[in-house]
């Protein structure tokens, strides 16, 4: 199994673009979900779409979520809380830039890193 990566942006285009970069740079072996936009498709985030993206990227080894701005984080936290406890324990939100973080996290995941490794690798970007 490989840790899954979820990309949550306010913009559907940014989310898709970041996912394209992950696919091209890291390949297809990392489970990947992405979503962007409010429930009407405008800029924003949607708990429902985040839940679907987590489902798509689900891995028993865990899922790391990359978010862009405030509402993406709040809505992701809300989505996680709506999941069963055993799933909640296997999901983390990374404090990292969404595009670079997604690529770095996916690279770590594809190398067999644990959920904690993946989160740490993504967050090293913020520490610099």
């Amino acid at each position: 199994m490989t840790v899954g990566i979820v990309i949550v942006s306010h913009s559907p285009d940014v989310a898709r673009g970041a996912a394209d970069m992950v696919r091209q740079m890291v390949g297809d072996e990392v489970p990947l979900g992405f979503c962007g936009g409010n429930p009407d498709g405008g800029l924003g985030t949607s708990v429902e779409k985040i839940l679907a993206a987590i489902d798509q990227a689900w891995s028993e080894d865990g899922v790391a979520i990359l978010v862009d701005l405030g509402g993406a984080e709040t809505n992701s936290e809300m989505a996680i809380e709506m999941l069963p406890d055993e799933r909640q324990a296997k999901i983390v939100i990374c404090n990292a830039p969404v595009v670079e973080g997604a690529v770095m996290a996916a690279t770590e995941a594809s190398g067999g890193g644990s959920l904690a490794d993946v989160k740490r690798t993504a967050e090293e970007l913020s520490a610099q």
Partner: peptide, 15 residues
Amino acid sequence: LVMKVGGASGPLYGT
């Protein structure tokens, strides 16, 4: 509100 608002105010008012 959580599911439909689409911003941080959804989870905040929803909660």
